[in-house]
Design a protein around this nucleic acid. Structure first.
Lengths: 243, 243
DNA sequence: GTGGGGACCTTACGGCGTAAGTGATATCCC
DNA sequence: GGGATATCACTTACGCCGTAAGGTCCCCAC
């Protein structure tokens, strides 16, 4: 049996690496949704058996963790502009960071819940800023700009809560648009158990406001709320000095 | 072989119902964590085979949905005090609602991510306020108190973002405390792949602030941020009238 | 008593994560 | 050049998962 013919039977002979696997996993989730990601399917996607992935990722959990890490680490490359230098004030930095994280959420709405929901390594590593490097950078930037330790930590907490709430909701909307994921059979099966009939007529205000509720002002609301948050920080910061 | 002896072989012969299943599931997740919840184990917990559950819940997905619905619906019973009447102003109502939702998050930190993360039935049914009844109540209360339709919708969006961000983070901390869930072997396996050695010495500010970062001021921060949010709403509301 | 129907059980299937062992291919030392 | 060795992917197998389909038992109306 000719041992020659199967030399390049798969043309995707890029040699497989942790990064290649993670990128493929992120792309896969973007396309098919989180629940569709299995080791076997991801292997198929890469032209490889599922078990081959285990040389690089240690397990499904480590795979998810790796996806999150890689995405968060992208923040320090160039989110969507140039990172503000030391001369530019902490507001510019927080604006830059906020928009960077928002970019992640909008580019990968199916992956973002993972960033937001998985238990971080340390409890004070709050999503969505779950990288030691990013948090160190956050705190040192603020301290360098005149924040006390206490104010910097408070700012970190307020900032992460803000990002998480706004971006998780924005990503949920984008994500449900991208991945219908619910088959018609699923809807059919879940129908009979849901309590009798949910009649919209029981909720007159919802009916009246449904169109308005469906409008999308995500960008404007995000900018507005971010500015409010920064104003609030600025006010609190000013309270420290004149004592 | 004596057909008599197995009359009451299981003393848990309460007749099984959707509510009993949902309650058991919530208790199970509180105790063992979300990933430990399987149809088979939940059946065992109830003294029943897994397939018996399907007469009441339609599938695992419907089970999760039911848990969320039941928890959110508890808000309208008596969160942690008496619901403010029509004479009490929208601030009192929002305070009451916010503390009710926070109560859910703190009592069931392992379930809360489910409330926060699952795709709601309608895209404008934003977590964590995912019930038609609750949202109708929210909007009508505000409109009755003088909000325009537009302001009420904006308030709904800001309020849900606020709750989601703050409570998901608070629940994550409580949840990781409750369910260690990570076996020592898991940690060991995920170690070798995580990039070389993560040395805390590379992050001097984190080291300096670690204690401060670990302090728990969740309650005070929640109250403070909630008041800020209500103040902001009040200011915006006042802008409408005097025009 | 009997038969019809509801509540629970049994069996079975395909897919999942992954432990363990097998083979093929590139690399290096002699 | 030729074996030892390391590297990488594959194969096989196990136990657990969700759940489709059908069976069994018991209780109650007649």
């Amino acid at each position: 049996m000719g041992g020659d013919g199967d030399r390049d039977e798969r043309n995707s002979r890029a040699p497989l690496s942790r990064e290649r696997i993670l990128d493929a996993a992120i792309a896969f989730v973007d396309a098919k949704g989180l629940t569709a990601l299995t080791m076997r399917r991801l292997g198929t996607e890469l032209g490889v058996e599922a078990m081959s992935l285990y040389r690089y990722v240690g397990g499904r959990d480590d795979l998810l963790e790796g996806m999150v890490d890689e995405m968060v680490d992208r923040l320090h490359l160039d989110p969507d502009g140039v990172r503000p230098g030391p001369g530019e004030g902490w507001q510019a930095y927080l604006q830059w960071l906020a928009h960077g994280v928002r970019g992640l959420a909008r580019e990968h709405p199916q992956v973002f819940p993972l960033i937001a929901t998985r238990h971080p390594a340390a409890p004070w590593l709050r999503p969505p800023l779950r990288s030691l490097r990013v948090v160190e950078d956050f705190l040192s930037t603020l301290v360098d700009r005149g924040f006390t330790d206490e104010r910097a930590v408070a700012a970190y907490r307020a900032f992460s809560s803000f990002l998480l709430g706004h971006l998780l909701l924005e990503a949920a909307v984008l994500g449900s648009r991208t991945a219908p994921a619910v088959e018609l059979t699923d809807v059919a099966r879940s129908m009979p158990t849901t309590s009798s009939s949910v009649d919209v007529r029981d909720y007159p205000l919802l009916r009246r406001l449904e169109d308005r509720l469906s409008e999308d002002h995500a960008s404007a609301e995000f900018e507005r709320a971010l500015e409010d948050l920064l104003d609030r920080m600025e006010r609190e910061l000013a309270d420290d000095l004149p004592g």
